[in-house]
Design a protein around this nucleic acid. Sequence first.
DNA 1: CTCTAGCAATCGATGATACCGAGTGCTAGA
DNA 2: TCTAGCACTCGGTATCATCGATTGCTAGAG
Lengths: 336, 336
Amino acid sequence: MLDDRKAAVLRAVVREYIETAQPVGSAHVARTTDLGVSPATVRNEMAALEREGYLAQPHTSAGRVPTDLGYRFFVDQLTGPGALPAVQRQQVRDFFAHAHGELEQMLHDTSSLLSGLTSYAALVLAPPHERATVRSVQVVGLTDRAAMVVIVLSNGAIEKAMLELDADVGDERLAAASTHLSAHLGGTSLQDGARVPATGDQRLDGLVDVVLKSMGDPADREHDHVFVGGASRMAAAFDAVDTVRQVLAILEQQYVVVSLLREVIDHDGDQGIAVSIGAEHGLQPLAECSIVVAPYEIEGEPVGTVGVLGPTRMNYPQAMAAVAVVSERLGRTLSA
Amino acid sequence: MLDDRKAAVLRAVVREYIETAQPVGSAHVARTTDLGVSPATVRNEMAALEREGYLAQPHTSAGRVPTDLGYRFFVDQLTGPGALPAVQRQQVRDFFAHAHGELEQMLHDTSSLLSGLTSYAALVLAPPHERATVRSVQVVGLTDRAAMVVIVLSNGAIEKAMLELDADVGDERLAAASTHLSAHLGGTSLQDGARVPATGDQRLDGLVDVVLKSMGDPADREHDHVFVGGASRMAAAFDAVDTVRQVLAILEQQYVVVSLLREVIDHDGDQGIAVSIGAEHGLQPLAECSIVVAPYEIEGEPVGTVGVLGPTRMNYPQAMAAVAVVSERLGRTLSA
DNA sequence: CTCTAGCAATCGATGATACCGAGTGCTAGA
DNA sequence: TCTAGCACTCGGTATCATCGATTGCTAGAG
């Protein structure tokens, strides 16, 4: 596709631009590469690269800037996700060594960690609750007409749903329903809408039905929780305050973020780390952003994703390294 | 303190500046007030107001801008929290009419609502769990060595804590502990570290102790959850991208936000709506922000707060109106 | 004593102008 | 095929004048 020298020039431009955020000129490239060619030669290559869509010029007589395509080439030709500085690697190890119990808290903290490592915004998608098996079902009465179903899952997550009751149901009956449901749902996964055999007691069976229905409610299934950490760092990445606003507005919509993460990771086959650059995904407000995501696995099964969102001119090797380490480590910790 | 005319001039300046964000000149004030005086007179008054600290001049030959003190006067002389447009009032009514069950979801949505009403960031502080009474306690085993304590409270909130066990404890024993704890803690509030009588079974009593200790863990008590909605709108309020970053960074620290809300509402006695303007609170990064908060009450008892965070030149009457209506309505809904 | 009209002075914003320098494209020659 | 040289482009910066909004002050009217 690109001959060696063009590739080297492109690499140099991308690297320099990532670091300085300034258009980079031919002289700079000639100096920083070991190609032993003059700026004039570099100029010719750069002009060619521009024709082919890898570079762009903000205006005549300015240096070149990578296009999305340019970044794409740069990312694709990376052999692996670079290495994290030892300090950071240690930081990650420490974090997960001390990570204790509670799933949601841990995922939340993980997003802060990742954001701190990269200085971009971090996204952590929680494992879908469907994957875990039920450990306990309990129906707790709150008021005469309202009860709450609390389901504890094997991974420490909790599903809950409100229940509106037609009539006052005694505590004993709720307790009976709890026992009955626990007995028959325990060990199953939430997604297969398991059948629960009738007890014979009509009132009880009715109650059980209501509970099951509320559990199957797709509104609750949407509970694909995503943790966004370090969103404020996006403000440092752009200088147009309006861009910042748009990006933050997107990050506030959990649903959008979730499907974005899904899309990016699906689109990329199962390459491990997936990268979406600039306008490659559909979201117009994020056209100036790139996303680096990786799935994390529990017991060998991919269950969630971690990723970072930064400006298109993000430090890809570093971001990929951080995402790789964190996803690997997170999976390992959750598998234990 | 200020004679009538000075007050009128100050009011006019504040109102105009809130609307236009431009320094306002004497001619403007003379035109928009019905004082029937000339710009020259207004100028004298404005000069006086500046000497007294209510106004400031960005530079000679620009109009005046209110100082924090100026806003403070403006807010203090407001008779009440202004009226919300009918459309918005209806919007709030609709929202709470359709608000269903789940506490956390509802508080989250409330923050979005309030942010939408004011176009500032909204803060909703959840009722401290200590206030609610325990409805059910359950200890659920997750792995051999880990269990989870799930406490359902009367207000529909859920407290959970991880438990690390020294040895494998049988399911029956966990169940026994659950029943025992439910029986003795049910109806009590979490904050009084209630004593639970011994059962005689040593292993069981040991387990109960562990659970109680984990519940008393102050790390969990910190669970004063705060919901921040519409943080992205802060990006529209400032044009210095760095200010935006600082403000957002603060909003990401739940702990800081919680104590800030507390401080503001405590400082103000029990006036209902409390307002903190500019640097009145201590947080330097929020020096260009104001906060409007109001407590909301369940069964007549103040349990949480709702508020908005906006630029110092926020629309106070409108913000106060929105906060007042939402807090009132939220309390009413939760009391039902 | 208060208010106002008039007026000079102030100072940011805007726009024109010139200049510099970084960087390019092209061409001729090695 | 590469490079040196060179004219050219064009954004950024500095300078300068101008414009306009607004002020502070003073003198005079009510």
